[in-house]
Simulated scan of single mutants.
Amino acid sequence: MSLICLGLVVYSFKPEGHLYDFKTITVVESIVPNGVGRSRMIESLEIKDYKEFSKIMSEDDNERNKADRGEIRVKNYEETKLLNFFNIGGIRFQNIAANDAIVNSRVSQFLDEGWEIVSINSGVESVGSADDNNGLFITRFYFKKQIN
């Protein structure tokens, strides 16, 4: 009986700290003409603690953050090739549909694994001048999953 009670206590104990795991997937789609850009879906396979690379700035201590860029860099990540929005003939709607199918497949897998979408954010980067034909369309998918 005491083993059963001990088992229930251990099973119901949740360690202090995080209640959720989080994941981010970033989709970078090139809007560079002639198909010369690179489009990818990226997922980090490493966990980083932001505190290792953070510094609290104050009036008394305003020296720059000296975190080592090499330690911040992630070397283990999953890269999924996507198609560029443009090819030599101009905008390619089949490429957009193909990218949608691949991204939907990955998002569906996350949902099947018990992850929940927290938010989706997107933006476009370009120089903004009339002559600018280069840029990126970036979408970030944020997921969370409760830790058991």
Rank of each mutant, 00 (worst) to 15 (best):
M1H: 10
M1L: 05
I4L: 14
L6A: 10
V10S: 04
V10F: 13
V10Y: 06
Y11P: 04
S12W: 06
S12T: 06
F13W: 14
K14S: 15
K14M: 09
H18C: 06
Y20C: 03
Y20R: 09
D21W: 08
F22E: 14
F22A: 12
I25R: 00
I25H: 00
T26I: 15
V28S: 03
V28L: 12
S30W: 11
S30A: 12
N34H: 12
N34I: 04
N34V: 06
N34D: 12
G35T: 08
S39W: 08
S39D: 09
R40N: 09
M41I: 15
I42C: 02
I42K: 00
E43Q: 14
E43G: 02
E43C: 07
L45G: 00
K48I: 10
K48S: 11
Y50V: 15
K51S: 12
E52K: 12
F53D: 11
S54Q: 11
K55P: 10
K55I: 12
M57K: 00
M57A: 11
M57N: 06
S58R: 03
N62D: 15
N62F: 15
E63L: 09
E63N: 01
E63I: 14
K66T: 13
K66G: 04
K66N: 13
K66F: 07
G70I: 07
E71T: 09
I72Q: 04
R73N: 08
R73T: 13
V74S: 01
V74M: 13
K75H: 07
N76I: 02
N76S: 06
Y77C: 02
E78P: 02
E78Q: 15
E79D: 13
E79V: 14
E79S: 10
T80A: 02
T80I: 15
T80H: 01
K81C: 02
L82C: 02
L82H: 05
L82W: 06
L83G: 00
N84E: 09
F86A: 05
N87C: 04
G89Y: 14
G90I: 11
I91E: 07
R92M: 05
F93W: 08
I96M: 08
A97R: 14
I102N: 01
V103K: 01
N104Q: 12
S105M: 08
S105D: 14
S105C: 04
V107I: 15
V107G: 01
F110A: 05
L111K: 01
L111P: 00
L111S: 01
L111T: 11
L111M: 13
G114K: 00
V118S: 08
S119T: 11
S119Y: 05
N121W: 04
N121I: 10
V124C: 02
V124G: 00
S126I: 02
G128W: 05
G128L: 09
G128E: 12
A130K: 08
D131S: 11
D131F: 12
D131H: 03
N133A: 06
G135H: 01
L136F: 13
I138V: 15
I138C: 07
T139I: 15
T139M: 07
Y142D: 03
Y142C: 01
F143C: 04
K144E: 13
K145H: 04
Q146T: 10
I147T: 07
N148T: 13
